[in-house]
């Protein structure tokens, strides 16, 4: 079995998530080849073929051109699976490639189950087992779902290029908004999720953070609704944190949130739904209404 792994490179750096692709291939027991639009100065430590296109020529984000590079590599390698990270790069590019190949695509794979793939659905509450029905398949894997694996060795680099076709131009990056808190330094983070119900209840969560000498975190809907500033957002599009204690209040546990906090030393979740997916990674799941439980906990801690 053979995989063509699509590496990721952004703002002049090879992204670490690239090594999760090798972790996936290992679990699959497959040979690997890689395509990377990056730089010769930052090659992944792996053996096997590496189709390398120069990002300064091909752009870091230029989907039509990158698609062409991948299609060219697919022709040479004839892989069973073309594998992306399910990221803003991967989910953008994968369907373009799949459509051109008329290949099955399985999105956001979190595990393998004999010849089929496990994926999450219904906001991570449920799972599906999906089988591709085509010889070749395009796979995107959930970031963090497979182990980081540095195979080591030196890749056999083949420099490749292609010409752009398409009506999209990349203008540039916009940096993340300035932060007024540095969650990365906090030892304790108490996070408000949509389950806190309303902006007026955020101080209840903040009070617990304060009583524990920590900072307030927030899930994305809480930030989108304007209840808490973006600088407090935890998750893939917010900050990644690993405090000594993380308390998630009314957070369901969507993967994009978990990605930002699952490395915390100790995780407590407070949720009224016993089946909330956050329970999967929490050391302690307290089944309760946040508005009843949190003030009581704050009072106890402050006493």
């Amino acid at each position: 079995m053979k995989t063509l792994l699509i590496g990721e490179y952004r703002e002049g750096k090879l992204l670490d998530t690239t090594y999760e692709l090798f972790g996936f291939a290992r679990q699959l027991g497959a040979e690997t080849a890689m395509l990377l639009v990056g730089s010769a100065s930052q090659l992944p430590a792996c053996s096997g073929p590496l189709y390398l296109a120069d990002a300064s020529q091909c752009g870091e984000y230029s989907p039509d051109l990158h698609k062409q590079l991948i299609l060219d590599a697919v022709q040479k390698e004839n892989p069973d699976y073309i594998v992306f990270i399910h990221s803003s790069y991967g989910w953008d590019l994968a369907p373009r490639v799949a459509t051109r190949l008329k290949a099955a695509q399985v999105s956001e794979v979190i595990g393998l189950s004999n010849n089929a793939f496990e994926v999450g659905c219904c906001n991570a509450k449920m799972r599906r087992t999906v089988k591709p029905a085509t010889g070749k398949a395009v796979i995107t894997i959930q970031a963090g779902a497979f182990p980081v694996l540095q195979p080591g060795g030196t890749p056999q680099v083949q420099t490749v290029t292609a010409t752009a076709a398409g009506n999209l131009t990349f203008v540039g990056y916009e940096p993340a908004e300035a932060k007024d808190v540095d969650l990365a330094k906090a030892e304790v983070i108490v996070t408000a999720g949509r389950g806190v119900g309303k902006k007026e209840n955020v101080p209840v969560i903040q009070a617990l953070a304060k009583a524990l000498g920590g900072e307030l975190g927030a899930s994305r809907p809480v930030v989108d609704a304007g209840w808490v500033e973006h600088s407090h957002q935890v998750g893939t599009t917010g900050q990644s944190v690993s405090p000594k204690l993380y308390i998630a209040c009314g957070v369901s546990g969507a993967i994009q949130h978990l990605a930002g906090m699952k490395k915390s030393d100790f995780i407590v979740a407070i949720n009224k739904d016993k089946d909330a997916p956050i329970g999967e990674i929490a050391d302690v799941l307290v089944v309760a209404d946040v508005l009843q439980f949190v003030p009581a906990l704050t009072a106890k801690v402050s006493a």
Partner: peptide, 17 residues
């Protein structure tokens, strides 16, 4: 002119015809 959301709060600005 579109702003794409990337990981970590960064945005990618692109133009499409």
């Amino acid at each position: 002119t579109a702003k794409r959301e990337l990981e970590g709060g960064i945005k990618g600005v692109v133009k499409l015809a």
